[in-house]
């Protein structure tokens, strides 16, 4: 395996390009590349911090993150394919469309490349899939707070990034399952697709408020859903009358948390997820096994559950959720 040399980095920098993130590596370092769904989104920018941090803190491994400019599965697949052709040592992937990567990942493992994934617990061709938590449980936790806020009766709805985003669908379904115990809670227009676009989430929320003027509960899926919903709620002046909970990032959602348009958000720190993915990469490269109960050195992943995945790999789950509302969002710098 050839490595980057300072010359090559200088040559690349001499071009007008924006370099993907990278750590200056030494000869003999293993090359681990993290491939995310899309670059430029706040979420994955935060994840990159964790990815880089791992490489800086540990010898023998060089970490970097890449991702397509657009949220298009074909573009992500092209990047993965080129990395396989380049012969990197390990891939840590957050797949846009898990099933379309099955083939290339199988070939990657066939070439001896270590494959770790995140947010893809239905993927067969992976050695380890990292989940920050159990998705159904995460969804249910939103529903718990929505139900509590609404007094366990009324109409509520759920949003997803897209019907193809597996984890978002699992959260929405987890929330819905929790709500089944309340006969007076009515789910309308489930799993509205925002396509990771805050404007679209806003338009959809407005439409729902129009169609169901008595609706009170909103569960967001993609991190921008609560932003769009919050904006619509604020516009309608319904901050105090609605219960909006969902995935979100503190900084982005702060305005709506303060005004009460969004009642609470939860997330898992993508920085930790990026870091832990590379922990798993390193362990696998060294041939170490991950077992239930292990402490991976990062809060939320100090007592992981390991179960069998659909293929030959395993699923590693933490309990890495973080709940944030108006009172504590300032504690988080992202």
């Amino acid at each position: 395996m050839k490595r980057h040399t300072p010359f090559r980095i200088a040559a690349a920098a001499a071009g007008i390009a924006m370099l993907g993130s990278g750590v200056l590596a030494q000869e003999g370092d293993k090359e681990a590349v993290t491939v995310v769904k899309v670059t430029g989104e706040n979420w994955f920018t935060r994840m990159e911090e964790g990815v880089k941090a791992y490489g800086q803190e540990h010898d023998g491994i060089a970490t970097r993150q890449v991702g397509p400019a657009r949220a298009d599965a074909a573009q992500q697949a092209a990047i993965v394919q080129d990395l396989v052709a380049q012969g990197v040592d390990a891939l840590a992937i957050v797949p846009m469309d898990p099933s379309s990567l099955e083939g290339i990942l199988r070939r990657a493992m066939g070439r001896g490349i270590t494959v770790i994934t995140h947010e893809a617990d239905n993927l067969e061709n992976t050695q380890l899939d990292l989940e920050a938590f159990d998705n159904a449980e995460f969804g249910a936790r939103f529903a718990t707070r929505i139900a509590e806020c609404m007094g366990e009766k009324g109409k509520w709805t759920s949003f997803v990034g897209s019907l193809g985003s597996l984890t978002h669908v699992q959260w929405a379904d987890g929330g819905a399952k929790y709500m089944e115990q309340f006969p007076e809670m009515e789910l309308v227009s489930p799993k509205n697709e925002s396509f990771n676009d805050a404007n679209r989430a806003y338009e959809l929320a407005r439409e729902i408020l129009r169609t169901h003027p008595d609706i009170r509960g909103f569960q967001g899926g993609s991190a921008i859903d609560v932003i769009g919903i919050g904006r619509a709620v604020e516009e309608a002046g319904l901050e105090d009358k609605t219960c909006v909970y969902g995935l979100g990032l503190p900084r982005d959602t702060s305005e709506y948390l303060e005004s009460g348009a969004v009642d609470g958000i939860s997330f898992w720190d993508p920085k930790d997820a990026g870091y832990v993915m590379n922990v798993l990469v390193d362990m696998t490269l060294k041939g170490e096994e991950v077992e239930s109960g292990m402490d991976l050195g990062v809060p939320g992943y100090e007592d992981v559950t390991v179960s069998d995945g659909p293929g030959e790999g395993k699923i590693v789950r933490g309990q890495a959720w973080v709940d944030v509302d108006a009172s504590n969002w300032k504690d988080y710098p992202f």
Binding site: A12, A17, T39
Partner: peptide
């Protein structure tokens, strides 16, 4: 060109 840019680890934005 697309693959070359990926090999060079140049950001996808630059590809466009």
């Amino acid at each position: 060109l697309s693959s070359l840019l990926n090999f060079m680890q140049i950001s996808n934005f630059f590809r466009d």
